[in-house]
Nucleic acid binder design. Structure first.
Length: 467
DNA sequence: TTTTGAGTTGTTCGA
DNA sequence: GTCGAACAACTCAAA
C-alpha cells in the first residue's frame, strides 16, 4: 500500500471529508498538507489570514489527537505539491475539487506532474451534476433549485476517522501568529457547534429574522463554509432534520429558507464553473458598457463608511472591524456603490473579497452581479435600493447603526437613518453635527437614482445599436 | 419548433 | 395611510 498526500485547500475538517477518505482508502499512509499560496494570500486582508492560520492550527491539533499532523508549506502549489510528493515518494494526491478558474488551472498544472484525484464535497451535490435534462447548465435560480432538490443527497455523512497513520518527519512551517477574529473562533469543532445550535433554535425564526442586522437572526457560518470547517452536506442534513422536527409551518419555512440560501451558494458555484468569464466581465453583454464614474474619493468614502447614509456606513464599518457583514447590509452597501455612486461593481467586488473572512469568488461575484443587474437572473436595473427605507425597515430602532457608527449613538430613533434632517439644536444635543461629526450625504438619493437609470439606459441602447 | 409563463431580496407614483 | 400598477423588456425553462 502506497503513501498518499491529502492536499487540504478548502476542506479544513476531518468529518465528512471525501478527499481524506479517498486518500485513506487507497493508501497505507496519508500525509495531510496545506500550501500557503502567496497568490491567494496577497488578495486578502489580515483578518482572513488570522482565521485561516488559526484554523490550520486547529486542524493540526485535531490530526495530532489521532496520531497524524499537518505539514504546512509556503509557495506556488504547482511546484510545492509535486516537490513534496517526490520528497516522500507519494503515489497520489487527493483533494476536494474547487471550481474557480485559478484553482482549476492550478490543479491541471499539478495533475500534469503527478497523479491527482479530485473528490466532491464543495457542494452537497457534485460539481456539474445539477444541470438541465439536456446536460446544459441552468441560468435561473428557481429551476436550478428544483433540480437540486430532486437529486438525492447521500444521507450518511462520513465520520471523522478515530486514528490516522503517523506522518514521517518532514519539514513544516508555522504560519504567523495573527489575531483571531473575536466573532469567529476557527475550527471544525466550533463550526459543528454553531451548526447544531442554529439548527435547533434560530433556524425556525430564520424566515422572519434573517434580514435584521440588528438581531442575531442568521447562522453566521459563512467563514466556516468557505474554509470547509463543515460540509454543505452536513448543513443540509441538519436543516432537513430540523425541518422534520419543526413544530409548525412558519418554523418549517425557516428551515426551507435556510436550505435555499445553501442552494444559492451552489447555484453561483455552478455559474462560475460553467461561465468562468463572469470574474472578468458582466454576464449580460448589454450591461458591459455602463459609463462608470471614475471617482476615487467617493470610493474611499464608501470603503471608510463615510457616505453619510447610516445603514451603508454601519455595514462598511462592520466589514472593516470584523471582516464580516450581514447579508442584507451587503446588498444595501453594494447597491449604494453601484447605483448611487455609479462606481464599477468590480471595484466593490474586489474590496469585499479583500475584506471578508468568508469571501468566496463564486458567491461574491454572484452577489455583486446580481446587485448591479449585470448577472444571470439579476435584479432589474431599475431596482435601486433606497438606503433610508432599507434602514428603517430592517434596522427599525437603529441599534445596528448606533453599534457601528458610534458618532450617531445619541441620535433619536426618528432621525437615525436621516440624521441630516435633524434640526440644528438636535444635532447639537446629540453631539452629531452633520458635516462635522458625521458627514452630509455624499449624494442625494433622488438625483443619484435618476443618474444611474440614465447610465444603464445608455449601456442598453449602445448594446442594441451594435447588433 | 413554437409557445407560454416565470423570473430572491424594491421603489415610486397616483388613486 | 394603503394599495395596485408601472418600472422594460428579455431570456430562460419547460411543455
Amino acid at each position: 500500500m502506497p503513501m498518499n498526500i491529502w492536499w487540504v485547500r478548502r476542506d479544513l475538517r476531518l468529518s465528512d471529508n471525501q478527499a481524506l477518505t479517498a486518500a485513506l482508502n487507497n493508501g497505507q499512509r496519508v500525509i495531510p498538507v496545506y500550501i500557503l499560496d502567496p497568490h491567494l494570500l496577497q488578495q486578502t486582508a489580515e483578518k482572513r489570514h488570522g482565521f485561516l492560520f488559526a484554523g490550520l492550527r486547529e486542524l493540526d491539533q485535531d490530526l495530532r489527537c489521532r496520531g497524524s499532523r499537518l505539514i504546512i508549506r509556503s509557495g506556488d502549489p504547482e511546484i510545492e505539491i509535486p516537490r513534496l510528493a517526490a520528497e516522500c515518494s507519494a503515489a497520489g494526491v487527493y483533494a476536494e475539487e474547487d471550481i474557480s478558474p485559478y484553482a482549476r488551472r492550478r490543479d491541471t498544472a499539478v495533475a500534469n506532474q503527478i497523479s491527482l484525484h479530485l473528490t466532491g464535497g464543495l457542494g452537497a451535490h457534485p460539481i456539474g451534476s445539477v444541470v438541465k435534462p439536456d446536460g446544459t447548465p441552468y441560468k435561473i435560480f428557481t429551476p436550478f433549485s428544483h433540480a437540486w432538490k430532486t437529486l438525492p443527497i447521500i444521507s450518511h455523512t462520513l465520520p471523522a476517522p478515530d486514528r490516522l497513520p503517523a506522518v514521517p518527519d518532514l519539514p513544516s512551517i508555522v504560519p504567523a501568529d495573527l489575531p483571531v477574529p473575536d466573532l469567529f473562533p476557527p475550527g471544525e469543532r466550533e463550526a459543528q457547534r454553531r451548526l447544531a445550535a442554529f439548527a435547533s433554535g434560530m433556524i425556525y425564526e430564520y424566515q422572519n429574522l434573517r434580514n435584521r442586522p440588528d438581531l442575531e437572526g442568521t447562522s453566521i457560518l459563512s467563514p466556516y463554509f468557505h474554509f470547509g470547517m463543515l460540509s454543505p452536506r452536513q448543513a443540509v442534513l441538519a436543516a432537513q432534520q430540523a425541518s422534520s422536527n419543526a413544530p409548525d409551518a412558519p418554523s418549517r419555512a425557516g428551515c426551507e429558507a435556510w436550505i435555499n440560501e445553501l442552494i444559492w451558494r451552489e447555484f453561483y458555484q455552478s455559474i462560475l464553473y460553467h461561465f468562468p468569464f463572469v470574474l472578468k466581465t458582466a454576464f449580460k453583454p448589454q450591461m458591459r458598457s455602463i459609463p462608470w464614474r471614475n471617482a476615487a474619493q467617493d470610493f474611499d468614502r464608501w470603503k471608510a463608511g463615510l457616505t453619510g447614509y447610516p445603514i451603508v456606513d454601519a455595514g462598511m464599518r462592520q466589514l472593516a472591524a470584523i471582516g464580516w457583514m450581514h447579508n442584507r447590509v451587503r446588498m444595501i452597501a453594494a447597491s449604494f456603490l453601484v447605483k448611487h455612486l455609479l462606481i464599477n461593481w468590480q471595484d466593490g467586488e474586489r474590496w469585499f473579497m479583500r475584506s471578508l473572512i468568508d469571501g468566496d469568488p463564486a458567491s461574491n461575484n454572484g452577489g455583486w452581479q446580481w446587485t448591479a443587474g449585470t448577472g444571470t437572473d439579476a435584479a432589474p436595473y431599475f431596482r435601486v435600493f433606497n438606503p433610508i427605507l432599507q434602514g428603517e425597515k430592517f434596522d427599525p430602532t437603529g441599534t445596528y447603526v448606533r453599534r457601528w457608527v458610534p458618532e450617531l449613538r445619541n441620535v433619536p430613533t426618528h432621525f437615525i437613518h436621516t440624521p441630516w434632517k435633524m434640526p440644528d439644536y438636535l444635532q447639537a444635543e446629540s453631539r452629531a453635527i452633520i458635516g462635522k461629526e458625521y458627514p452630509k450625504p455624499i449624494v442625494d438619493h433622488n438625483a443619484a437614482r435618476q443618474r444611474v437609470l440614465e447610465a444603464y439606459a445608455l449601456s442598453k441602447s449602445s448594446a442594441a445599436s451594435k447588433v
